[in-house]
Design a binder for these strands. Structure first.
Lengths: 252, 252
DNA sequence: GCTCCCGCCTCCCGCGACGTGAGGGTCAAG
DNA sequence: CTTGACCCTCACGTCGCGGGAGGCGGGAGC
């Protein structure tokens, strides 16, 4: 089976230019050429391209991929095993980044100040020095000021008060429901969870169900957020989290 | 408080050249200069640099960071949400890739030939949104990989024959159990499912219960794998899959 | 035969986010 | 007054391609 560049490109989801590039640097040279000079790729080339694409997606530089693929000590099964490990690891790291973003969004919403360490939590290689630590303390202070300044710039006082009123009203009804002994996965609790989601959407940012569930998990996992709700009513963080989960499931 | 480039660079964990670059493109211009032309960064510059670093680690390009920081009308939350979507999208894609790898592993194990379409199916809706990341540095640690590669490289013909023999022995006992009418979620079937998992672990790759269940689903969903087991004994694919599920649940 | 158009070829400039010098001025310590 | 660490401004190199120019090959229709 022989394929032209265009066919290979369409099948593999890369551009023709990319295949030309791989040929140029010797990473993937087609099995042969037609008399007119057209590149002719065979099945072995496709298999190699698949491995290249996976390693590329994992962030390996091309020259290293060439070294890995041309290493005679590594059989194809070993490549697959390795890629499986790398992929799961990579997913874990991306999840950390997503969690960091969710933390940032939620911290902005509640005006909770992140410690510099938390902000750099997504950095793998950050080592605090003495001088750096001093600077971080200052940065932390000014950051809180910047956030609050920005918020007052974006919302008028009326807006802010209205938001606060809506929020407190929601909180009161939530507490009332809890103390009346209604289950967290009841229709009423789910309705309030939905209302919570829409409050976030209206005042802060668009919050689909998936994100809402992530937030719910954070409310019970991160003690600062837990404290925020426990201050309203003991057990509220867990109750709200369960209601959010139930609501998300029922709407899915 | 005024700092030189070097001091700022050390404190923030970036290179001097990076600060020069940020100055060149106007992303972070120092508050002033000394008479000799030295850059003098003040506290506000440090704060801005910290935010730049933060957004960069979250994967934002420099021009977008400039937009976020300089446009008073820009909503940081919207950018965070966009980045959140981007990252979750990438996670989903990586999960598909993991599934494709598992398919390729099993296909190789059972000597099934993949078509080019299947090979690249996971890249179907690929869009040029290449995020070159240093994942390789963190996850590409070649230590474990080389060990496993060496181990499989040392598999001799005898080893392979022994593997085959063990596999066939397991198959015979599985068939015997099936034909005797024992239920797929019985203790005996679960024991054989567990043995299957350990065979994979010993001979091919580490196979936790989660992965084992994925494989089980593939055995019934993909007709080529189904055929592999049906050739051993009719109904075996479904029987094995059910046993694997039961085993995974009981061990969890 | 001739045209038409698509796909292929090579050559080459451009990008983003810096790295890496070259060649030279500045500053504090010894 | 020297030394060595630090700073400056060019300016070109890197990686993994994107995109276009200018030209050739191949099959369909006239």
């Amino acid at each position: 089976m022989a394929y032209t560049v265009g066919q290979v490109a369409r099948a593999a989801g890369v551009t023709v230019r990319t295949l030309h590039h791989y040929d140029e640097i010797g990473l993937l040279s087609p099995g042969g050429r037609t008399p007119a000079g057209y590149r002719r790729y065979d099945d072995a080339d496709l298999e190699r391209l698949q491995l290249i694409r996976y390693y590329r997606e994992l962030g390996f530089p091309l020259d290293e991929i060439a070294a890995i693929l041309d290493d005679p000590a590594a059989d194809p099964a070993a490549h697959l095993r390795r890629q499986h490990e790398l992929l799961t690891g990579r997913i874990g790291k991306l999840r950390e980044m997503v969690a960091a973003i969710e933390l940032a969004m939620e911290a902005r919403k509640m005006n909770i100040q992140l410690t510099p360490e938390e902000r750099f939590q997504v950095f793998g290689d950050f080592e605090p020095e003495d001088h750096a630590e001093e600077a971080e303390q200052r940065w932390g202070d000014t950051e809180a000021y910047r956030q609050s300044a920005e918020r007052t710039a974006r919302y008028s006082k009326e807006d802010w008060l209205r938001n606060k009123a809506e929020n407190e009203d929601w909180g009161r009804r939530m507490v009332a429901l809890m103390t009346s002994g209604v289950a967290a996965d009841s229709a009423e609790a789910m309705a309030l969870a939905e209302e919570h989601r829409q409050l976030i959407t209206r005042w802060f940012y668009d919050c689909p169900y998936e994100l809402h569930v992530c937030l719910a998990d954070m409310y019970v996992a991160d003690e600062r957020f837990t404290a925020y709700f426990e201050a309203i009513h003991p057990g509220m963080a867990a109750y709200l989290a369960e209601a959010i989960h139930a609501n998300a499931i029922s709407r899915a």
